[in-house]
Design a protein around this nucleic acid. Structure first.
Length: 421
DNA sequence: TCTGGGGTCCTAGGACCC
DNA sequence: TCTGGGGTCCTAGGACCC
């Protein structure tokens, strides 16, 4: 049978491991990393996991437990983690060219061409090299489909010594799926999990043996596909094109905001950030969507959430154009009297920048605007983010998020290089 | 007091057309 | 006044992922 072979490479406890790379004293110490605004726990070292601190839990609920146990707490430092991620992915790509970067800390690899080789041996080598080059420990799961390689990877993580799992033998697949809760399967979360359990499907093995047509009715074609994948038929391929189809920029405020002026500053800042990402991938945007909301944990009569979508007259990558449109939406959806928690913008219907060039340049003002944007990008690249920015983004920025315990930008800021004493 | 941010995909239902 | 089916496109919302 000419079946495919996939590997899922996953960095172990990625953000926590990044913090360790330049701070070796943290070896064997419990670490957690918090989300923006120091809101939730988003990464835990093994030692922190042993203290039963759950993933995604609100920080304030576990503060005491962590103090008591001497847990090292870090605010998130995405500039640093992003750079470490690039190093890991670059290392992987040198060793395994047919690679899909799936998230900041994971990559899928097509290993079909290595079917005659000893894949466990190859994986050992890759693991060693990545650790040596970047300081980051990884786990590797090997299987005939992406979904099964996810399962393999979670098994690899539990095997403390090897961190590698080859899950290609049918007996082993069935054995492992029998002891795997159905909600642990990639693509099944608690919503569908509950639905499946109510019809007697409790484990990965139950789902593997379920009737695909029936599951399609109960869930959707997504569920059907998962069953096929569990049975070794590959339905989800490596994604080789990696342009984003939508770009989001959103953040909670550092405190509850009531004034429209501050909200406009925030949304202008996020719009600028989103447009930078847009130009990075050489696209233009045709549709934008902006939302504004209070905390969902407010009492019901003080809750408010609204979003509005706008089609732009011409596809653009100009920050000024997008800021103007975004602020117009804020004016439409803002209501006085609420304590707002968060706003954000999504760029949608992205197209390739060269696709529109001709018609675009009939309008000379657009050409001028693009030149301004290009110059701004260059200045900010050279002298640091937000050296120049649009006036609408504001200069006070009281609404900005807080992050009390951020580590240094060891790898991206000259001022914050680690010192060797 | 304090609960993240950035993505993708699928479906149902309405508008509209012939 | 009665009275149709079939197709496409778009959007909102809901599910999932890390």
């Amino acid at each position: 049978m000419n079946s495919r072979i996939f590997a899922l490479v996953d960095c172990n406890n990625f953000y926590a491991s990044c913090e360790r790379v330049f701070n070796p004293k943290l070896e064997n110490e419990p670490i957690v990393v918090l989300s923006n605004n120091d809101g939730c726990i988003v990464s835990r070292s093994n030692e922190a996991k042993e203290l039963k601190i759950p993933m995604g839990a609100p920080y304030f609920k576990y503060k005491e437990l962590m103090n008591k146990n001497g847990v090292h707490v870090f605010s998130s430092n995405y500039t640093f983690y992003g750079d470490m991620s690039r190093r890991v992915m670059k290392s992987l790509r040198m060793l395994l060219p047919d690679l899909e970067i799936y998230s900041i800390d994971e990559a899928f690899v097509d290993l079909s061409q290595y079917r005659e080789s000893n894949l466990v041996e190859i994986s050992e080598e890759i693991k060693e090299k990545v650790k040596q080059w970047t300081g980051i420990p990884i786990s590797i799961g090997i299987a005939h489909t992406k979904t099964l390689s996810k399962v393999a990877n979670s098994i690899a993580k539990k095997e403390k010594e090897s961190s590698i799992c080859d899950l290609r033998k049918i007996e082993k697949i069935e054995e492992e799926l029998t002891i795997l809760d159905v909600e642990e399967i990639w693509g099944i979360a608690s919503g569908w999990g509950k639905r499946l359990k109510s019809i007697g499907i409790n484990t990965g093995y139950d789902l593997m043996k379920a009737n695909p047509e029936y599951i399609r009715q109960k869930i959707s074609v997504v569920g059907q596909r998962i069953i096929m994948e569990l049975n070794g038929y590959s339905c989800i391929d490596i994604e080789r094109v990696q342009k984003k189809k939508s770009i989001i920029s959103s953040k909670s405020f550092g405190y509850k905001v009531t004034e429209i002026q501050e909200i406009k500053e925030a949304v202008s800042t996020y719009a600028a950030r989103a447009c930078e990402k847009l130009r990075d991938q050489k696209s233009r945007v045709q549709v934008i969507s902006v939302y504004l909301r209070t905390s969902p944990f407010e009492k019901e009569d003080s809750r408010y959430a609204k979003s509005e979508t706008k089609v732009l007259s011409t596809p653009t990558s100009s920050t000024a154009k997008v800021i103007t449109a975004a602020n117009k939406i804020i004016e439409e959806i803002y209501r006085e009297g609420y304590r707002y928690q968060k706003t954000g913008i999504t760029l949608l219907n992205l197209i390739n920048e060269d696709y529109v060039q001709e018609s675009l340049y009939e309008d000379r003002s657009l050409e001028r605007e693009e030149k301004i944007t290009t110059v701004m990008d260059q200045v900010n690249m050279q002298y640091g983010t937000n050296t120049i920015f649009h006036a609408s983004q504001g200069t006070k920025k009281d609404w900005r998020v807080k992050s009390d315990s951020r580590s240094k930008k060891y790898t991206t800021s000259l001022k914050e290089l680690p010192l060797v004493k």
